[in-house]
Amino acid sequence: LIPPLVALVMDWGFPFGAAREAARLRGDREGLARLMGAVFSGRLFLALACVAASLALLPLVPHAREHPAAYGLAVLMGIGRGISPVWFFQGVGQGMRRMAAWDVGSSLGALALTFLCIRRPEAWPLYLLFAALCKGLVYAGLSLGLMRAWGARLSLAAGWRALGRTRTLFAGSVAPVLSTSGGQLVLGYFLTAADMGLLVAVNKIVRALVSLLKPAVQTLFPELCALRGRRSPRTARLLLLFTGASTGCMLLAAALAWLTAPWLIRLALGAGYDEAVPVLRLMLLLAPLLGCDMVLGAQVLVPLGLERAQTLVQWGAALLGLPLAALLGARFGLAGGALLPVAVEALTFLGLTACILRFCPGALIPGARLPARRDISPETPLQR
């Protein structure tokens, strides 16, 4: 739990905010260097904050006092994951093959060291050490290499401003965590531990299915930002095509998973979990909704600087999901728990659609006139 939370803080709003700004600054070497220095400086603040918070929370985190070294390695592992410079390669539209090669190579290196060096159960903290070193050293080396190549310099003032200008995107990334964790906490009052275990496992299966769409979203995002900056008429056509393709793929994937649900459950959970099959089939309604919400938010609203509207929708759906969890859990039991994330994503879809109709109704209409990005959100540009 510690590494993903620390990585979430370290990411802040940079995966989208910094990538969007880098796409806008393509060809401006000096501007990209300033942006790089601002982002790396901002992440230095975040790393120090994570270390300070982890020390303050040490007495409160379960098992941390019994295993302080492992706790520290878990924090270091999260920081290592969170300094990835992938946003820069995505933004400038080059170098992604090199980034992917280093990323996969570091994961394989950590896996190889784990198999070679961990022979006893009590040696499990070594896994955290290997993961922290392999990822952290690779990402740190890539970041330092970029700074030297582009002539970027750290600036604490610019880093602090960058954190302020991407705070809304960070708040948006926290909302799904609240929705998932808070909903499960409320459902725990109405469902048995066995039912909660099934829900958590099936939810992971469905979200793993939807995660197949993320590489395409991350690849297209900076290109859309660059096209938005040039007010290109190709933007709406590309976005409309991608929206239809991604929704169709998610519907097809959900249909295939519905048909093969018994086999998927046996593969993922093992024999004896037949009661999870109807739960999976209900929760598969989540797949096309998540796919649509991912496109409407990341590909329509954020490139236009409307992350504030997206974040308000996400938080509104997450907060409404808490009383909805109590209602569905008390009334429908396990089936209600399966429908909860579907209902939350449906609310998110309705909210995002309303925002698009309100602020940028021509986003999916080729040739329609759209407002300039800086006219909508006062939080951009990321650097001055």
Score class of each variant (00 low, 15 high):
residue 124 W to D: 05
residue 99 M to Y: 14
residue 181 S to G: 09
residue 146 L to Q: 10
residue 138 V to H: 00
residue 141 G to C: 11
residue 128 L to H: 01
residue 149 A to K: 13
residue 131 A to Q: 05
residue 159 G to L: 11
residue 110 A to I: 02
residue 158 A to K: 01
residue 177 V to H: 13
residue 155 S to D: 15
residue 108 L to Q: 06
residue 179 S to F: 01
residue 148 R to L: 12
residue 161 R to K: 14
residue 140 A to Q: 12
residue 127 Y to V: 08
residue 155 S to E: 14
residue 147 M to A: 14
residue 167 R to E: 05
residue 126 L to H: 02
residue 117 C to F: 11
residue 141 G to P: 09
residue 132 A to F: 01
residue 140 A to S: 14
residue 152 A to W: 03
residue 155 S to Y: 15
residue 182 G to A: 11
residue 162 A to F: 08
residue 167 R to C: 08
residue 116 L to P: 00
residue 104 V to E: 09
residue 99 M to Q: 13
residue 148 R to N: 12
residue 137 L to G: 09
residue 104 V to R: 09
residue 150 W to A: 05
residue 177 V to E: 14
residue 116 L to K: 04
residue 112 A to T: 08
residue 125 P to M: 15
residue 108 L to P: 13
residue 142 L to I: 13
residue 163 L to E: 00
residue 162 A to P: 05
residue 100 A to S: 14
residue 146 L to E: 08
residue 105 G to C: 07
residue 164 G to A: 10
residue 114 T to Q: 08
residue 172 G to A: 07
residue 107 S to H: 08
residue 180 T to M: 12
residue 152 A to Y: 05
residue 135 K to Q: 11
residue 182 G to C: 12
residue 142 L to K: 01
residue 102 W to R: 00
residue 112 A to L: 15
residue 167 R to H: 09
residue 111 L to K: 03
residue 164 G to P: 10
residue 180 T to Y: 10
residue 128 L to D: 00
residue 129 L to T: 04
residue 126 L to S: 01
residue 109 G to T: 11
residue 178 L to M: 15
residue 139 Y to W: 10
residue 161 R to P: 00
residue 175 A to S: 12
residue 163 L to D: 00
residue 162 A to W: 02
residue 130 F to K: 00
residue 136 G to L: 04
residue 105 G to I: 02
residue 184 Q to F: 12
residue 139 Y to K: 04
residue 158 A to P: 05
residue 185 L to C: 14
residue 143 S to G: 15
residue 120 R to E: 11
residue 114 T to P: 01
residue 129 L to G: 02
residue 120 R to Q: 13
residue 137 L to S: 11
residue 167 R to Y: 08
residue 108 L to S: 11
residue 116 L to E: 06
residue 109 G to M: 12
residue 163 L to Y: 04
residue 148 R to E: 13
residue 106 S to F: 01
residue 178 L to P: 04
residue 176 P to L: 03
residue 165 R to D: 06
residue 125 P to I: 14
residue 151 G to K: 09
residue 120 R to H: 13
residue 102 W to I: 00
residue 107 S to R: 08
residue 103 D to L: 02
residue 121 P to V: 09
residue 135 K to I: 03
residue 109 G to K: 02
residue 130 F to G: 00
residue 172 G to K: 02
residue 129 L to M: 09
residue 120 R to V: 11
residue 148 R to C: 10
residue 144 L to N: 09
residue 172 G to T: 06
residue 135 K to E: 04
residue 114 T to W: 06
residue 126 L to T: 01
residue 184 Q to P: 00
residue 111 L to G: 11
residue 127 Y to W: 12
residue 160 W to F: 15
residue 175 A to Y: 03
residue 168 T to K: 03
residue 153 R to E: 15
residue 146 L to K: 07
residue 169 L to D: 01
residue 161 R to F: 11
residue 174 V to N: 12
residue 142 L to S: 05
residue 134 C to T: 01
residue 136 G to Y: 01
residue 118 I to V: 15
residue 174 V to T: 10
residue 136 G to T: 06
residue 158 A to R: 02
residue 113 L to N: 00
residue 151 G to M: 08
residue 99 M to D: 10
residue 178 L to E: 09
residue 153 R to A: 15
residue 117 C to Y: 03
residue 147 M to W: 05
residue 143 S to K: 07
residue 150 W to V: 02
residue 170 F to T: 00
residue 103 D to Y: 02
residue 179 S to D: 11
residue 145 G to R: 10
residue 182 G to T: 09
